[in-house]
Amino acid sequence: MFEARLNNATTLKKILDAIKDLLNEGTFDCSDSGIQLQAMDNSHVSLVSLTLRSDGFDKFRCDRNLSMGMNLGSMAKILKCANNDDTVTIKAQDNADTVTFMFESQNQEKVSDYEMKLMNLDQEHLGIPETDYSCVVRMPAMEFARICRDLAQFSESVVICCTKEGVKFSASGDVGSANVKLAQTFNVDKEEEAIVIEMQEPVVLTFACRYLNAFTKATPLSNQVQLSMSADVPLVVEYRIAELGHIRYYLAPKIED
């Protein structure tokens, strides 16, 4: 028996919004420690890794490890049927071929349940080692989304240059060139507005705007985003989900011609 409850459907809606543009389907691996999803996007250029800890749920029960392959488009249709303040419960029997989403209104007067067929997805899991990165940048998630959106107008690629003074995002194309420099902040009143750079070695890396923009669909989940970069290895874009877990996106740097 698997049962996971969140007192507010908004978080689950935001999580789905953060992955459904990159992935058509995904396997939710459930265990007593929580729910994990790892999947490459359709073109195998980026990797999505979602971790939701069991202690972040308002109720969590998982008697046996369970892998539930879901069509994310179908899941999105179902979650549209939930009000933001509904309690959402995800339920499945052991070895079941369906999953049930139950939505309960705050006053308990409306209870709906939607059963969805599970899919058998033959997805390979990749081992992602814990790595020390040359540069780790924490910045407001809204600011990162804005920069990715703005620079995508000028080029398919953005160059991220990180030194201990700051981080620079650049794009150049037929129209001209664009540069956005952010300095590390000191003594900001609100932690969520801070720009913090931890640098061992400066890095200059080029990434595809299209994927960075897809990652910023997670912006509503978190005030801050963390970018971890080293030469010649995938960038990690991490959004923490308060008290529940995180979503990480991995994207390989583009190779200069």
């Binding site: 490459m40 073109s43 195998h44 250029v45 990797l47 390979e124 991995y250 583009k254």
Partner: peptide, 14 residues
């Protein structure tokens, strides 16, 4: 995408 490596090539299968 040109100049873009497959993300799977950076990690070993589990």
């Amino acid at each position: 995408t040109s100049g873009q490596k497959n993300i799977g090539s950076f990690f070993a299968p589990k």
